[in-house]
Design a binder for these strands. Structure first.
Lengths: 225, 225
DNA sequence: ACTACCACACTTGTATGGTAGTATGGAACT
DNA sequence: AGTTCCATACTACCATACAAGTGTGGTAGT
């Protein structure tokens, strides 16, 4: 009898998918790079089947492009798609934080505060990677508190396109102070039920990531359509 | 040499996927129904491979649930997911029609007017199916005119969950008159650059479909989680 | 030198066999 | 009768073989 609630062992397909996805998002597999079912199956020591299924899933998410009988390629970055992803995220996050200002569970607010505390600590340690995670976690908690986790999941998927450009921030000037201030102001606004302030702060917050794309585009023009 | 611009012949996988999806959305395959790679492969006269790949794609869209070594089942309708899909659509459509009030290309506005004309004709013919298509086409044109077709694609995917409940409208009182009036008022608002009117009308417009779920839920409680 | 053609080395698409886990119904035992 | 156990018939997962389309480089013919 299986343990209830046991984490199911990840299938070969899931492993390959996660690995490939992280390689694509980190630009380790750059836009335009050629993939092949056979080559990947050798690299991961599995058969073509799970590799192929990973390709199909990545293709559905728009991260690779499968051309029948020709090959599979990491998708070039489509600036239009990136802009629309940012647009969708802006609309949904603004709507959610308005909801949060109306009502937000106390325990989730406490989570936000705890997250902010850890952000301060990570800034002192200059732990950029952890700050990146905390940023995601902060926004996730916002959606969770509003009962909109499915919406967060959709945003996460669209973020795949944004993140290939946002990665740059880890290596350039991060402005973590600025980001932290905005996070704190948003939490305060929720507590004070100040929807207008929360929404405008969120809008600023999400605009910060726009410039990354410009930088990346100048540096690697062949990564774009 | 292949004809350039020729439509690629649909693969067996695509055929099976479309067929299954339409059967699920039409409730011909009701929520909870068991599927099987083997059974479907016999039904469609293809091997298990393209069937399996269709299952995986449907699973990623949340329309079926794959339980390893147990079976594949049509997903039960999750009211929370349906509500969030409606929520996302509301936010995005409201944002887009605000954009449209700011600027909207003349040819797309003409498309909206032509669509409205055909809506009137279809209402006279009581051609409900065509009206359903025209409704979708109307909203698509809105997104197209704002350069937000990718956003429309995301909405379409979420609509899969809404549509299983919206299907009812085809068989009940449709209130097509009401829907038409709203469509016309939105086109007028865009032309008059009246964002407030456009947005509030859109909000009403999208609220109309909420009641369908209540009806369906009373009639088929075992279709829901 | 140039062109047309073809063999070949790729690619993804499809079919199928084997493996391991799961549910179920009946038999054997208490 | 009720419970335990096991054979069996499923399931999806994975490996592998074959089919069919595509691009390329070399070769033969002009």
């Amino acid at each position: 009898m299986p343990f209830l609630g046991q984490t199911p062992i990840p299938s070969a397909r899931d492993v390959v998918y996660s690995k490939l996805k992280s390689q694509i998002l980190s630009l380790e597999l750059p836009p335009g790079a050629a993939l092949s079912e056979k080559e990947s199956s050798l690299a991961f020591n599995v058969s073509r089947t799970p590799v192929r299924e990973s390709f199909l899933r990545l293709a559905q998410e728009g991260l690779v492009q499968v051309l029948p009988q020709r090959g599979t390629f990491v998708s070039l970055i489509d600036p239009e798609l990136v802009e629309e992803a940012r647009f969708m995220r802006e609309q949904l996050e603004k709507a959610v934080i308005r909801l949060a200002c109306d009502s937000f569970p106390a325990d989730k607010l406490a989570e936000l505060r705890a997250n902010l505390k850890e952000q301060r600590e990570s800034m002192e340690r200059k732990d950029d990677l952890r700050l990146f995670e905390l940023d995601e976690s902060y926004h996730r908690t916002l959606f969770e508190g509003c009962g909109k986790l499915n919406t967060w999941a959709v945003i996460q998927q669209m973020n795949a396109h944004l993140n290939r450009t946002r990665l740059l921030r880890l290596f350039s000037d991060h402005q973590w102070n600025h980001l932290y201030d905005q996070h704190e102001r948003m939490a305060d606004a929720i507590e004070a039920h100040d929807a207008a302030l929360a929404e405008s702060t969120m809008q600023e917050h999400l605009l910060l990531s726009v410039k990354d794309q410009v930088v990346l585009r100048e540096k690697y023009p062949h990564y774009f359509i």
